[in-house]
Design a protein around this nucleic acid. Structure first.
Length: 567
RNA sequence: GCUCCCGUAGUUCAAUGGAUAGAAUACAGGUUUGCGGAACCUGCGAUCUAGGUUCGACUCCUAGCGGGAGCACCA
């Protein structure tokens, strides 16, 4: 979507170093595009350039000699302390302490703005995620979808994009008819609860398969719901269940930190979609066995039904209708939908059909997928059988957080336990690349140690504790007091790069991994360096501590994770 | 069968075509009262196989082996 090349480092210092190398190449009569990267190892410096290895062959020199030649011609720069040739011909740049001192001051001055960029200012986006089925429980899959969806929204906003979050609740489907039938079958119509809806759904699905009479009944209920016949007992059960589920949806997503400006219901999309499909038959769609289908097989995909033989739009027609409604109601540059990976092929088909109806629809729409969350060891008490519910997972983890706080003689605070639990789950999801399955080991997640959300929160709490002990408002940094350059500084200024990269590639895990590196570097430094030592460097060290805290806070927020001051 | 995705320490994950493949966990050992030990340090340990492209391959290409997802009226 955004035309930024992969992995580009978008910061002033990067541009300055790049220009420096480019000018040198020109002065030597060479041509080539200068690309900088951060070396994997901080000991290799802050920027690395491979231009000598790229040019060596065409110039007919050995890469190291060429690199030496370039280095000898590079002009001095106030922010560059040292330039070295290393390995097979890398040119490594070591930034000067003056740069880092300056950067730390800037970070502290930016406050809330730290980490934000204006790169995508002016761009607008519609972002669809966390779409619930109103008659099915909010389960483990929604947890993944919500975590990644919410995080991406926050990341896009951090680079300047205006994002409208949207959810697309399923409020009409054969499955819902089954649940409505089952609620009546169980006699629960006057006492419907969210838990009962979940149970009813399972009951209805099972009975539908068993009994032909029931099947007929349910099909009639389904037709009546699709046709919105409002004077039946089915409708009143349906309405109650729908309202209850919607409230629940709002509650659980807000517990997870999401808000939705807009909802578009599947029932609206079905009406809209059906009309569009009919209008474009037989140009795009065709009749087959009484249904209206799309010949995806002619486009390297597969054939599938858009309007079934009963005359109702399937989820394919619904997604076409949804697209149409989105373009009717909103103005945007891009519409993103994030779903489970199992829907990948479905959306390829939707996109292809959309392209044939209206080219713009396909051009401005992106469908992205995330992997599945699998639970391995450890038990979760679940109310409804096989699929673990989001709420049950959250509650189990929070229970363990309480225990941990008591073990450590900390104040056992309700909010903190909640934030630690959400953090453990969200971080486990966000640390993995999008689209890969996530193995959630309850035992490991509950240890709250190592590469985990609580580890990052702990590090943040530690920084706050030190700042409080110093008993000073933002320390005035005049100089670094002779402090040698530390790894923490080498990482700090890269934070906005990590955010931009995450936005470019739709990959929150770049933020997660960055924070993990930063926290690790800080803890390691902390173990070897006394911050409050009364030396000339104390204020600068406090400044670094504050900058790390600010970065962790902002970065975790981008992942949808709260940062308690104490834990 | 067709289409797509994935194979990295015992396990769970990283790695922008670059340097000695990084963490976490597990296991073994350790941390001078110094600001939070949910921490820190040391050790052990890995790119599925066979070719190819490239100055350079976990990464790109081909084949094979292994695992997963999707493929007509559920979403």
């Amino acid at each position: 979507m955004f035309s930024q090349p992969k992995g580009m480092i978008d910061s002033m210092i990067n541009k300055e170093v790049t220009d420096l190398v480019s000018e040198t190449l020109t002065s030597l009569g060479f041509e080539g595009e200068v690309v900088l990267e951060h070396p994997n190892d901080l000991l290799h410096g802050d920027f690395s350039c491979n231009i000598a290895m790229v040019l060596a062959k065409q110039v007919g020199k050995n890469p190291r000699e060429l690199a030496e030649e370039i280095v000898s011609k590079i002009e001095e720069h106030e922010y560059i302390e040292k330039v070295e040739v290393a390995g097979p011909g890398f040119i490594n740049f070591y930034l000067a302490s003056t740069f880092f001192t300056q950067k730390t001051k800037e970070i502290l001055k930016q406050g809330e703005e730290w980490g934000k960029t204006t790169r995508d200012a002016g761009k607008t986006m519609l972002f669809e995620h966390s779409s619930p089925n109103l008659f099915k429980p909010f389960h483990i899959g929604h947890l993944v979808n919500n975590t990644l969806g919410e995080s991406l929204i926050r990341i896009f906003r951090a680079t300047g994009t205006t994002v409208v979050p949207l959810s697309y609740p399923s409020d009409v489907s054969p499955g819902i008819a089954k649940a409505v039938w089952a609620i009546l079958d169980k006699g629960w119509q006057d006492d419907i609860t969210v838990a009962r809806i979940g149970e009813a759904y399972a009951h209805g699905v099972a009975q539908y398969k068993e009994n032909e009479e029931i099947q007929k009944e349910i099909n009639e209920i389904n037709a009546s719901l699709y046709n919105q016949e409002t004077d039946t007992q089915f409708w009143s059960v349906y309405e109650k269940g729908r309202a209850l589920s919607l409230d629940y949806f709002t509650a659980i997503t807000s517990r997870l930190g999401s808000e939705f400006d807009e909802l578009i219901f599947e029932s609206e999309a079905e009406k809209e979609g059906k009309e569009i499909i009919k209008k474009h038959t037989p140009r795009v769609f065709e009749e087959s066995d009484g249904a209206i289908i799309f010949r995806g097989s002619e486009h390297g995909l597969f054939d599938n039904v858009f309007i079934n033989s009963a005359g109702f739009g399937t989820y394919l027609a619904k997604d076409i209708g949804l697209l149409s409604l989105k373009f009717d109601k909103y103005t945007f540059d891009t519409s993103i939908t994030i779903t489970d990976i199992e829907q990948k092929h479905h959306f390829q088909l939707v996109k292809k059909a959309a392209e044939l109806i209206n080219k713009e629809w396909a051009e401005k729409s992106e469908y992205i997928q995330h992997g599945r969350l699998e639970l391995t060891t450890g038990k979760i008490s679940s109310r409804s059988g096989n699929v673990p519910l989001a709420e049950d997972i959250l509650d189990s983890v929070r229970e363990r957080a309480h225990e941990r706080m008591q073990e450590n003689n900390r104040v056992d605070d309700e909010m903190v336990a909640e934030h630690v639990a959400v953090s453990a789950i969200k971080y486990a999801i966000a640390r993995v690349g999008m689209g890969k399955n996530i193995v959630f080991d309850m035992e490991q997640a509950l240890s709250f140690e190592g590469d985990s959300g609580p580890y990052l929160q702990y590090t943040y709490a530690r920084t706050q504790s030190i700042l409080q002990k110093a008993n000073e408002a933002t320390p005035e940094i005049s100089s670094r007091g002779g402090l040698a350059i530390v790894a923490v500084e080498q990482l700090l200024y890269r934070f906005p790069e990590a955010v931009e990269r995450a936005a470019n590639e739709y990959e929150p895990h770049y933020v997660a991994n960055y924070l993990s590196d930063l926290a690790s570097a800080y803890n390691s430094w902390y173990a070897n360096e006394q911050v409050l030592d009364g030396s000339d460097a104390q204020n600068y060290k406090l400044g670094l501590t504050e900058a790390v805290g600010a970065t962790l806070k902002k970065g975790l927020w981008l992942l949808g994770i709260e940062t308690p001051e104490r834990m």
